[in-house]
Nucleic acid binder design. Structure first.
Length: 606
RNA sequence: GCGCCCUUAGCUCAGUUGGAUAGAGCAACAGCCUUCUAAGCUGUGGGUCAGUGGUUCGAAUCCACUAGGGCGCGCCA
C-alpha cells in the first residue's frame, strides 16, 4: 500500500532530465510566441551560435512593468561579451518594430519590458472563444508516453479518506499531462501477493462460517474486523455451501484469497467511480510473480552483477530488538544513489515487495513508458530512493521515475479536528465523505495544497458559500458568468450568441483596465498548464482558478457602483456583445480548468 | 545515528523552475452596501522568507552548516 511522505524533488531544472524540455512552442501560449519573436530579434545582435536556452519570456512580477519581460540581455551578455544594458537597448529597438508591441523599456539590471496592444489581447479573447474548453491545450508533451500510477490501495478494505488524496492528485495530474500533450496511461498496482491478502482470506473464511450459522464472537486480533467482509462470506456460503467449513486452511486459502481480492477490488473500483476516478490498467502483483516476471527482471540485474548475497549492518541508533545478522539476497542500490543495498528475498524464499516492484516498473518501461510517475502516501518516503535506484538500474538509465508523496489529510469540522468513529456514527470511509460533501468538493479541496504539504479538510468550510471556500468561489464565478450569458440571451433574443459568433464580434469596446487584465489572465492559462504539467504540480491549477474567479468577481462588483461597467447595457448593444464575449471567455477558461480537476462546472448555484 | 521532507504576515497558505519593491484569503482596524437572481464590497496596517555563510549581474528559490518540526530506517506493503 502506497498511501499517506514527502516529495524529494528528484527532477529539478538544471539537471539533465526527460521532464524538462524547452524547444518548440504552441500558438496558444502567447509567451512562447514572443519567445520566438525575441529569438528572431536577436539575430544580427549577438553571434548566431549562442546558447539561447536560458532566454525566457515571462510576465513581469509586477504588472506595472508591462505585459511581458525577457531576461535575454542578462543571460547572454557574458556569452556575447557585450554590456547587458547595451545589448538590451539594441534588442529593445528591434522589438519596438513589432506590430503588436506598443512600448518597450529597459529596466533594472537589463530586463526588457514591453506592452502589447489592446487589439492583440482582444484577439486572444477571440482565440479563447474559438478554442472553447480546449483553450490551454498544449503540444509540449509531443505525444510522449507517461505512466501515472496512483491509488494502488491494498485490496483489503474500502477506501478511506487518506486514499482519496492520492487518487485525486494522480487523476488530476494525468489529466493535466494529457492537456499538455502527453500520452498518459493511468495505472493501479494491486498488492495481492503479500501476507496481508492471506489475512484477508482468513477473515473472509470467518465471515463464511458466520454466514453458515456459526457464532464467531469477537474478531481475533490478527484478522480484519470490518463488516464489509460479511457480504463476501455470505456469497461464498451461498455458492459453495459448507464445503470448506471444516476443511484445513490449505484447501481453501487460495480460493478464498482470489474471491476476497476480487470482491475488494470491485468495492474499491466502485469507490473510485464515485470519486470519478478510472484507471485504464490494473496490474496484479501476484499474477506478475506467477508469470515469472520477477525472476526475469532480477535475472537481468544478476547478469550485470548487481545482485549478491550479503549481511546488512543494523541501522545505527535504532537497532530492532530481534536483530540478528543474516545473509540476504541484496540489490546493489548503493551503486545508483541509495544509502544501503536492499533485500530482495524474504527468509521463506519469496520475493520482497521491493523485488516485485522492480519487475513492475521494468514492465512499465518495457511497455514503452520511459517516464513514470508514482503517487504514494508520505509514509513511503523512505522507499523512494531505492525504487528510483532500481529504475535507473533496470532501464540502464533510460527511464525516469518521479514519486509524488501525498501528506496526510486531517479531517476538520469548524476548525476542530474531526474524530472519525464508527461507534459515534460519524463516517470513516471515502464513500461517506462523498455522500457528505459531494464528489466535486472532495476533488477540488484535495487539490488546494501541494501534494507534499499537509492538508486540512474542513467539512464546514467545504460547503460554506463564501469567499474563503475556493470551491464555491470558483464554481460561483462560472455560474455567475453563465447567469450573465442567460441575461444576454434574453437581451439579444433571436441573435446567434454561440461561441463561434461571439469570437467574431467587435471587441473594441473592451477598454477598462480590469477588463483587459481579465483577458491577460485568461491568456496566461496555456502557460500555466504547461508549467504545472512540466513540474507535475496540479495544485497550481486551483490557485489559477481562484485568481481567475477573483478577477471576474471583482469586475462584476465594480458594476454595482459604476453602472457603465455592467456587462449588459440596454442602450449599448455593441458594448454588451463585447462584454458577453468576455464573460463567456471566463466561463470557458474556468470550465477548462475544472475539467483538469474532474470537477463539473455548475450553471447556477442552488 | 543516518536518509528524505518541511520552516514565508497573528492564522492558513501561494510564490510562475534564479528575476525587479515577497503575494492572497482569514483575523484586526476603518468605511460602504438591498444587488446585471445571488450568499457581500472598498480601503488600511501587518515580513530579519527559521539562522549563518557561500555561488552570481541577481537568492524565499541553488549549495554548505546550525536550530526546530515531520516521515522513514532487514525477511510490512
Amino acid at each position: 500500500m502506497r498511501l499517506c511522505g514527502r516529495h524529494d524533488r528528484p527532477f529539478r531544472a538544471g539537471r539533465a532530465s526527460p521532464f524538462i524540455r524547452s524547444s518548440g512552442y504552441t500558438m496558444s501560449n502567447c509567451f512562447r510566441l514572443f519567445q520566438a519573436v525575441v529569438q528572431d530579434a536577436l539575430v544580427g545582435i549577438v553571434p548566431a551560435d549562442l546558447d539561447l536556452s536560458r532566454v525566457a519570456v515571462e510576465p513581469p512580477r509586477d504588472a506595472a512593468h508591462g505585459d511581458m519581460a525577457t531576461n535575454a540581455a542578462m543571460v547572454l551578455s557574458k556569452q556575447a561579451k557585450m554590456n547587458p544594458k547595451a545589448l538590451a537597448e539594441q534588442l529593445a529597438e528591434k522589438l519596438r518594430q513589432h506590430p503588436d508591441i506598443t512600448s518597450v523599456e529597459v529596466a533594472g539590471p537589463g530586463f526588457i519590458n514591453w506592452r502589447l496592444s489592446d487589439s492583440f489581447w482582444r484577439a486572444q479573447l477571440s482565440a479563447i472563444l474559438k478554442a472553447g474548453t480546449n483553450w490551454g491545450d498544449s503540444d509540449i508533451g509531443k505525444g510522449q508516453k507517461v505512466n501515472v500510477e496512483y491509488v494502488s490501495a491494498n485490496p483489503t478494505g474500502p477506501m478511506h479518506i487518506g486514499h482519496a488524496r492520492g487518487a485525486v492528485v494522480g487523476d488530476a495530474l494525468a489529466a493535466l499531462l494529457e492537456k499538455a500533450g502527453y500520452d498518459v496511461a493511468r495505472e493501479y498496482y494491486i498488492n495481492d501477493a503479500g501476507a496481508q491478502v492471506d489475512v484477508l482470506a482468513r477473515s473472509v473464511h470467518l465471515r463464511y462460517r458466520e454466514a453458515l450459522g456459526e457464532t464467531i464472537g469477537p474478531i481475533s486480533e490478527g484478522l480484519y474486523p470490518g463488516e464489509y467482509l460479511i457480504g463476501a462470506g455470505q456469497a461464498l456460503a451461498k455458492a459453495h455451501g459448507d464445503k470448506w467449513l471444516n476443511a484445513p486452511e490449505s484447501e481453501w486459502l487460495t480460493a478464498f484469497r482470489h474471491f476476497a481480492v476480487d470482491a475488494m477490488m470491485d468495492m474499491i473500483r466502485d469507490d473510485l467511480a464515485a470519486l470519478g476516478v478510472e484507471h485504464a490498467v490494473f496490474t496484479s502483483e501476484r499474477a506478475m510473480v506467477e508469470a515469472g516476471a520477477v525472476d526475469a527482471a532480477l535475472k537481468n540485474l544478476e547478469e550485470r552483477g548487481l545482485i549478491y548475497t550479503g549481511v546488512l549492518e543494523p541501522p545505527k541508533g535504532k537497532t530492532p530488538e530481534d536483530w540478528e545478522p543474516r545473509p540476504q539476497t541484496l540489490f546493489k542500490a548503493t551503486e545508483f544513489g541509495d544509502d544501503v543495498d536492499r533485500p530482495l528475498k524474504k527468509s521463506d524464499g519469496s520475493w520482497t515487495y521491493f523485488a516485485s516492484d522492480i519487475a513492475y516498473h521494468k514492465s512499465k518501461f518495457d511497455r514503452g513508458f520511459p517516464v513514470m510517475i508514482d503517487v504514494w502516501g508520505a509514509d513511503h518516503g523512505g522507499y523512494v530512493k531505492r525504487l528510483q535506484a532500481a529504475v535507473k538500474a533496470i532501464t540502464e538509465g533510460q527511464g525516469a521515475l518521479d514519486v509524488k508523496l501525498c501528506q496526510m489529510v486531517s479531517l476538520m469540522k469548524n476548525g476542530e479536528p474531526y474524530k472519525m468513529s464508527k461507534r459515534a456514527g460519524t463516517f470513516v470511509t471515502l464513500r461517506d465523505l462523498i455522500d457528505e460533501v459531494g464528489k466535486d468538493v472532495v476533488r477540488f479541496i484535495m487539490l488546494t495544497r501541494k501534494n507534499d504539504a499537509q492538508l486540512d479538510f474542513d467539512l464546514d468550510k467545504a460547503l460554506e458559500q463564501s469567499r474563503d471556500n475556493p470551491v464555491f468561489y470558483v464554481q460561483y464565478a462560472h455560474a455567475r458568468a453563465c447567469s450573465v450569458a442567460r441575461h444576454g440571451a434574453e437581451m439579444f433574443k433571436g441573435r446567434d450568441l454561440s461561441d463561434a459568433a461571439l469570437s467574431g464580434v467587435d471587441l473594441s469596446g473592451l477598454q477598462d483596465a480590469d477588463e483587459m487584465a481579465l483577458i491577460r489572465l485568461m491568456a496566461a492559462w496555456p502557460r500555466l498548464v504547461e508549467s504545472a504539467a512540466e513540474s507535475h504540480e496540479p495544485h497550481r491549477v486551483a490557485y489559477y482558478l481562484a485568481d481567475l474567479a477573483a478577477a471576474f468577481h471583482g469586475l462584476w462588483n465594480r458594476g454595482r457602483d459604476e453602472a457603465q461597467l455592467r456587462f449588459l447595457i440596454g442602450e449599448n448593444p455593441d458594448l454588451s456583445l463585447a462584454r458577453l464575449a468576455l464573460v463567456r471567455g471566463v466561463a470557458l477558461v474556468a470550465a477548462s480548468g475544472l475539467k483538469v480537476f474532474g470537477v463539473e462546472p455548475v450553471l447556477e448555484m442552488r
